[in-house]
Structure formats: C-alpha cells, structure tokens
Design a protein around this nucleic acid. Structure first.
Lengths: 197, 197
DNA sequence: CGCAAAACTTTACACTGTAAAGATTGTAGG
DNA sequence: CCTACAATCTTTACAGTGTAAAGTTTTGCG
C-alpha cells in the first residue's frame, strides 16, 4: 500500500501549486519540477495530466481568467448605477492585477496559440469581455457613454485599463504618478474620456 | 595569430544577434548560447560584457526603446497638425509592435528592477514618454485635447494604445475586430475619446 | 479474480545559465 | 623592445530545466 500512487486530484493540485508558487515567488520560480515538488509528486508526474509545460500554464491562465471574471462580476453586481458599475469593474481589474501580479501576467501573456489548442482559455476570455460589453451597453442606455459599437468601445476601455496596469507592473509609469495619486483618482482620469456629462 | 580572440565590438554584436533572433525565431529562441553562436563566439563569451542574461536582455530592451523613439519622433515630425501628429505617433507605436512583436514584448516586459540596475533603459523610457507629453501639450494649445495635467493625459493615451497592442499580441481581442477593421480605423476609435470637437 | 489501463516513479538525456580556470591578445611602464 | 598585466575569449564543469522512455503500483472493469 504505497500511497505515493494515485494522488486523487493531482491535476487541480498541480494548478493550485502553480498559482501559489506564482503568488509567493514569482514567474521565474514557476518550474515544472517546483510545481511537482509542491504537490508532493515526482518531477515527471505532471505529464500524466498535461502534455507539456505550456498546457499547465494554459490551465493556470484559465484559472486566472476565472478568478478575474468572478471579481469583475462581483464588482458589477455591487453597483446599480451603470457608470459606478464601470468604475467598480475597472477597479476590480486593477486590484486583481496588483494583488497577484505574476498570475495576472501569465493569464494574459502566458498562453500562445490559444485559439488552436486551449479552447477553455478562450472561453473564459470571451466571458470576461462580454461582461464589459454588457456594462458599456448599460451605460449607453443611460446616456453615460456615447452611442456606437459597444464592442469597440469596450475594447477601448479594456485596452486603456489593461495598458495602464501593464505599464504599472512593468515599472513604465513615471514614478511620481503612482506615489502622488490614489488608484480611484487614476481611474477617474483613465475613464473620464469615455464618459459623457 | 588566432583571430578567435578580441572580436572588436562583441558587445554590440551580441545585442544585434539577440535582436535578429527575436525577429526570426521569437522569444523562446533567445538563449545566451544561441546569441553567442550567432555572434560566432563561445557560449561563455558574453560574460565578458554582460553580468548575466538579464543584463543582455536589458541592453536589447534599451535598443528596442531607442528604435521605438526614432519611429515616434519620425511620425511626430511628419505631421504639422497636432491631432494628426497624435495619430501618426500612435500608428508608429502600433506598427513597431506589429513589425517586431518579440522585440516589443521584451522591451516592455523583459526588464525587471529597471530603476535600480539599468539606468540607460529608464532614460530611454522617459525620453519616449516625454515625446508623447509634448504632443499632448501641442494638442491642448490648439484646443484639440481637453485641458488638464498633460502627463496624466499622456499616460492615459499611452495606456490605451499600449493595452490595445498588448491585447492584440496576446490574441485577447475578439477575432472579428482585427479582420473587420483596419488599423487606422481602430486608432480613430481608440483616440477619439481623448479628442475634442 | 485477473488483467488492462491509468497514475505515478525512476532513469536518462539534451539544453540552459553560470562559475572557474586556462589560453590568447592588446597595452602601458620599464 | 620587452615584459608584466589586464582584457577578452575558450574550455571545462556543474546544477537546474523540460521531456522522453521504461518500470512500478493502483484502480476498475470484464
């Protein structure tokens, strides 16, 4: 009775181990052997559940998108007014990125050739985007956002927030910006161009 | 007389070799040994000019920022009207990212702890940002952009364009977007919220 | 119960970054 | 001029990485 075999739910254990490694020690520590060790299995065990490292990364990224969607959805439901809703969703997006920078980075940059090989990932991506589109449409219905293709507007907003976070995480923003302005204030600046009134 | 020694300008040759590898085979091919081989030296030779791989990457990223600045400056000088200028600069930014995606990615995501260790990189970063700020100020002087802290507005615009490119390169944009709209048209959508009239 | 498939371990290998020591060359001081 | 020295490059070596292959244990189905 060697309990080393048949872990039970190793696949999810590996994903979770990877997420913890990202959270604690960052991207450079996300190695297959590290993940396996953290899950308590031999270094080749992951290959029973993932064809290669990319597949594990894709699973971790998919999980990241799921978490992100939950945060966005919670923010969306927290505000009845569409414009407030937009701000809350944007703030949740930024918060996720700042709370788990490594996981966030891998969620958006870790998956290559997503379309062909990782449909689950693509699905989560579309779900989050659809949420933003819905918020934009709500805003348009209340005349808080100019009319026009809501998908195009949602992409613009997403790009604006995403780019801001990306520059922030990459230390590309002028140092004075972050120190002198709070996040909600920066959000005002970022989103004001898209709002009417 | 063994000419294997004292290459002449190996440091720049390595940087150039790295850039070519990025352009031809992408990020996963950017290995120290590959770079050394392409430059025609042994795999440990780079350590005479770079303390580690990160230092070489930082040099490549700095070079990327220099190229980007040149493209932006050329675009800036090509248009007398400030608003046209803004579009041209944004388009140059996108063009650089699409022409050399791997080099672009490494320019913005490859350097960690830039402030402390890579002052050249930080300098190039600030120079490009200053250019955008100047364009914004020009636009404000002609009432094409709303008044307000030009640095904040420039960051917003940069974030918008940068985020868009980042999402594009990461295949995060709805597939129909890219196929149905040309780049200049997308730029219109992205920048219109920042423009008056 | 038996046996095939699934899950895991062990072993092995090529490739990576990097350290250390040796070989070669340019160069400054006698 | 030549001789030490410093800079540059090569060779050798090693630990860590992803991954393939073969062996071992367990599960579940006929």
């Amino acid at each position: 009775m060697n309990s080393n075999y048949h872990h039970g739910d190793l696949k999810n254990a590996l994903i979770q181990a990877g997420i913890e490694i990202l959270s604690k020690d960052g991207m450079q520590a996300l190695t297959l052997r590290n993940v396996a060790k953290k899950a308590g299995v031999s270094h080749a065990a992951p290959y029973a559940h993932f064809t290669d490292k990319q597949a594990l990364i894709a699973a971790i990224a998919t999980e990241g998108y799921k978490k992100l969607y939950q945060q966005l959805a919670a923010a969306q439901n927290s505000q009845p007014d569409p414009a407030d809703c937009l701000f809350a969703v944007a703030q949740a997006y930024i918060q996720f990125a700042l709370d788990e920078p490594a996981h966030f980075k891998i969620t958006f940059a870790g998956v290559v050739e997503a379309e062909q090989n990782y449909p689950d990932y693509v699905e989560q991506s579309k779900r989050s985007f659809a949420l933003v589109v819905a918020v934009v449409i709500d805003c348009q219905n209340q005349n808080r956002v100019a009319p026009g293709d809501p998908e195009l507007i949602a992409v613009s907003m997403w790009a604006c927030i995403h780019g801001f976070v990306q520059l922030w995480l990459g230390n590309q923003l002028p140092g004075t910006l972050i120190t002198q302005h709070a996040v909600p204030e920066l959000l005002q600046v970022l989103l004001r161009p898209f709002l009417l009134n």
